[in-house]
């Protein structure tokens, strides 16, 4: 029979756990709102960048002098996988599902005889990948969201990637992150950064803009603009991915902590039931002893 005192201690400890998880849930909800606002605010830039690049890429595609970032390095032997995860745990399957996707990609590529390299943004991803792919991790960035995720930080990563690409350290670069749908649904998305994959062009939009298929004039020239635009675009894509990831992380944590709070509540109910029953049993036992003692006299 469980000891009354032990039960009491147990209930108290679960109660304080519940307090912590519900506080974490509130914090995650507040952070989620902020992350979502930030992600929304950055959307116009990315959209317009996409549109500009789309028309430029269409014009420059197939030309001999197209920049490498657009056309690729002519090989696809070495793949770089950028794994964007969180720095902290306690957010359900968030980190694990991103790492699982990265791992799956890596195994497929290795089976095809390719070389794979990893670049981790976020401590959790590195920790999980280190076990299997320790020697393939060529860089890690931590604490990117502290105190605030800014474009400068994403641009620094973007520049590092471009420098590595130009030095011939890899041929294809893919970013793996979790796209934010809602607090309970985050979709792990691999997105190819290098070479540039043009988004689906929208025919209807040209009409609306009064372009009617007119071709842009480029100043100074297509190539100069592309060489300036492509590296910026990579920084933007990384920034966008990280913002989505931040929103997803907080969403996942909010859901995980909500579940934990609810589980703790259930546990407290069950334990309280056992506690009361045990207490009642003890009282009944004592009563029987007293009564039978009295009858014996």
């Amino acid at each position: 029979m469980p000891n009354l005192k032990d039960l009491k201690v147990r209930i108290d400890s679960v109660k304080s756990t519940r307090k912590i998880t519900s506080a974490m849930k509130m914090v995650a909800a507040a952070k989620l709102r902020r992350a979502q606002e930030q992600a929304e605010a950055s959307r116009p830039y990315a959209e317009r960048m996409d549109r500009m690049l789309g028309s430029l890429a269409a014009a420059a595609a197939g030309q001999a002098g197209a920049p490498k970032l657009l056309a690729g390095s002519g090989s696809d032997q070495i793949h770089l996988i950028l794994v964007a995860t969180a720095d902290r745990g306690l957010c359900g399957g968030f980190n694990t599902s991103i790492v699982r996707e990265a791992r799956r990609m890596a195994h497929t590529l290795i089976d095809q005889g390719k070389t794979v390299k990893f670049f981790c943004i976020g401590r959790k991803g590195r920790d999980q990948l280190r076990r299997d792919f320790g020697s393939m991790i060529i860089g890690t960035v931590e604490d990117i969201a502290k105190p605030k995720l800014s474009f400068d930080k994403a641009a620094a990563i973007g520049e590092r990637i471009v420098t590595m690409f130009e030095a011939g350290e890899f041929d294809v670069c893919t970013l793996v992150y979790a796209e934010f749908r809602s607090a309970i649904s985050q979709i792990v998305t691999p997105q190819q950064l290098i070479p540039f994959a043009a988004p689906e062009s929208d025919e209807g939009e040209d009409q609306e803009e009064g372009l009617n298929g007119a071709v842009y004039e480029y100043e100074p020239g297509e190539e100069e603009i592309l060489t300036a635009l492509l590296p910026t675009n990579i920084s933007i894509q990384v920034f966008k991915g990280l913002l989505e990831n931040a929103a997803s992380e907080h969403g996942a944590r909010m859901t995980a902590m909500d579940n934990a709070t609810r589980n703790a509540g259930d546990m407290i109910n069950n334990l309280t039931l056992v506690y009361n029953r045990t207490r009642q049993a003890a009282i009944t036992g004592e009563l029987i002893e007293i009564i039978s003692a009295k009858e014996a006299m």
Binding site: L56, Y216, E219, E224, I225
Partner: peptide
Amino acid sequence: EEGDFGVLERHTPMIST
């Protein structure tokens, strides 16, 4: 990049650094 330019309505489509 190659000098300031003014944009009014019905400008030619253009992309510039």
